[in-house]
Simulated assay, not measured.
Amino acid sequence: MVEAVNPPDVWSPFGAFSMAVIQGDGQVVHLKGQVSLDREGRVVGPGDMRVQVRKVLENIRDVLAAMGGQMTDVISLVHYATDIDAFMAAGDIRKEYFVAPYPVTTTVQVERLYRPELMIEIASIAEIPRSRFRRPGPGN
């Protein structure tokens, strides 16, 4: 069974997706690809990869926190960047959010994301220990 999670502190899904899904008994969590949107769905940092990377990682952190998760629980990331050189130049920002052992990663350059102002989307998978995991209430 898969259960959807849409925390109220992150922008609301506007299509056929959830911010995260919980697989099985709730330890493995698959997060929707996060983009640089604020809670109201406005783009943060148009044209600025560094600002967008930071906001995307904050969104991942906030979605995980809604279930008792932390950035250290992230085991896999897939980066979709519209400018891979700009993304690679923002690598130091990731070190503010992750510590060794780092998640496995895949990075690809794409022509564009669903909104032209967006430069980066990051999908992730986390494993939250049972001791910290909390299943969000209805509507989250």
Rank of each mutant, 00 (worst) to 15 (best):
1 M>A: 05
4 A>Y: 12
4 A>N: 06
5 V>Y: 11
5 V>P: 04
8 P>D: 08
8 P>E: 13
9 D>M: 03
11 W>R: 06
11 W>L: 04
12 S>D: 10
14 F>V: 05
15 G>P: 10
16 A>T: 14
17 F>E: 15
17 F>C: 14
19 M>N: 10
20 A>C: 02
22 I>T: 01
24 G>K: 10
24 G>E: 07
25 D>Y: 12
25 D>L: 11
28 V>P: 01
28 V>M: 11
30 H>Q: 15
31 L>Q: 09
33 G>I: 08
33 G>R: 10
34 Q>Y: 07
37 L>N: 12
37 L>I: 15
38 D>K: 06
39 R>I: 04
39 R>H: 09
39 R>Y: 13
40 E>P: 06
40 E>M: 15
40 E>F: 10
42 R>E: 14
43 V>M: 14
44 V>Y: 08
45 G>H: 13
46 P>S: 11
46 P>M: 11
46 P>K: 13
47 G>W: 13
47 G>R: 14
50 R>S: 05
50 R>C: 02
50 R>Y: 15
53 V>G: 12
53 V>W: 14
54 R>A: 07
54 R>V: 01
55 K>Q: 09
56 V>G: 00
58 E>A: 04
59 N>R: 10
59 N>M: 03
59 N>E: 08
60 I>L: 09
62 D>W: 00
65 A>M: 04
66 A>P: 03
66 A>M: 09
66 A>D: 12
67 M>H: 12
67 M>S: 09
67 M>F: 11
67 M>Q: 07
69 G>P: 00
69 G>K: 04
69 G>C: 01
70 Q>W: 15
70 Q>R: 15
71 M>E: 12
71 M>C: 03
73 D>V: 03
74 V>I: 06
75 I>W: 13
75 I>M: 11
76 S>G: 03
76 S>M: 07
78 V>H: 05
79 H>V: 10
80 Y>N: 09
81 A>V: 01
88 M>H: 06
90 A>H: 13
91 G>Q: 05
92 D>L: 02
94 R>L: 08
96 E>L: 05
96 E>I: 03
97 Y>H: 02
98 F>G: 06
99 V>H: 13
101 P>Y: 11
102 Y>H: 04
102 Y>Q: 05
102 Y>K: 02
103 P>A: 08
104 V>F: 13
107 T>M: 01
108 V>G: 02
110 V>L: 06
110 V>D: 04
111 E>D: 14
114 Y>S: 12
115 R>D: 10
116 P>L: 15
117 E>V: 11
121 E>V: 01
123 A>Y: 03
123 A>M: 10
123 A>V: 06
125 I>C: 05
126 A>D: 00
126 A>Q: 01
129 P>M: 02
130 R>E: 15
130 R>S: 13
131 S>E: 13
132 R>T: 02
134 R>F: 07
136 P>E: 04
136 P>Q: 07
138 P>H: 09
138 P>M: 08
139 G>L: 11
140 N>I: 04
